[in-house]
Design a protein around this nucleic acid. Structure first.
Lengths: 155, 155
DNA sequence: TCGATAAAGGTCAGAAAAGGTCTAAAGGTC
DNA sequence: GACCTTTAGACCTTTTCTGACCTTTATCGA
């Protein structure tokens, strides 16, 4: 259990715990240096331990001045939405289900009318081919991404 | 965030914010001197951060007495939004242009921060294959659809 | 007046500075 | 031994930065 992935995971969680806004930022190369591992190891840690299904958002930028930012989504108030994201939707979703979900969010006052229209339109336009499996997967990816944004930016 | 480009961008935005008419003027060489960089760095900042899709007009003059003037374009009525839809975007659009535009709308208070994040995420997720022509067309379709929603449902 | 010179800014290619992806091998677990 | 997780490394993409070389404009002196 002393593998480097777990150690880095703990380190990141400790820093997130100390941080004020529930977000930290660092350079991939520096972190790799600190733990004497290859940089891609950091990506492995991020994808296995800080995925969105675990309640994290990871933002990165390449090039000079590049960075990795990890944001923790406060779970207490968001569990319902996260549940929706990872249980109801899964990795594919039909158009009616998706639209139904969006309407539900509006009725529960989780999103505004305008946001609801925005989201519905996106679903219709970006994944129009109704029952094609490819479209079902695409729709799930887009819908989940949008829900993650809502989690991050409370109304 | 220790890169010069971001620092110069902030400096220019601060000066624009303080300015009365939403315009500032300076000498390229002096600015470069101030930030200890080569003059062409200023051009890089201008083209990546003060493009027209982000809501700026840049005017310059060469030779003795030359200058660079940056003008912020306020965005007021929905007619201008329609203009954007039909002129700036067209039937294909790059990712940076699209995101620049979304930020512009946010800065002009036409969309909320949450809507901006929603839209940016959609653009990134739904048309990820950056420079592929198919993705460029797809991006345009999605972006225009979203803008039409904004037009119909005022903030 | 007109041509040379100085004083700007513009362009472009390439280097540098990040982070991303993919695969193969190594390590664990049952 | 089969299967899953972890680790390393080769190679790729994006973004920023630098410098050499080019163009435009103003001014000054013959």
């Amino acid at each position: 259990m002393a593998n480097i992935t777990d150690i880095i995971e703990e380190y990141i969680k400790a820093r997130l715990g100390r941080s004020s806004g529930g977000a930290i930022i660092f350079r991939r190369g520096e972190l790799a240096e600190k733990f004497s591992c290859v940089p891609s190891q950091i990506n492995y840690v991020l994808s296995t331990r800080f995925s969105s299904s675990r309640g994290y958002i990871v933002e990165t930028r390449r090039g000079g001045g590049g960075f990795i930012r990890i944001i923790r989504i406060p779970l207490e108030e968001s569990e319902e939405l996260l549940d929706i994201v990872y249980e109801k939707i899964g990795d594919q979703v039909g158009i009616n289900e998706a639209i139904g979900l969006i309407r539900y969010l509006f009725e529960e006052d989780i999103i505004s009318r305008r946001e609801a229209h925005l989201m519905e339109t996106v679903i219709e336009v970006a994944a129009p081919d109704h029952s094609h499996p490819e479209a079902r997967r695409n729709r799930a990816v887009i819908l989940k991404s949008m829900l993650m944004v809502l989690l991050r930016h409370k109304k």
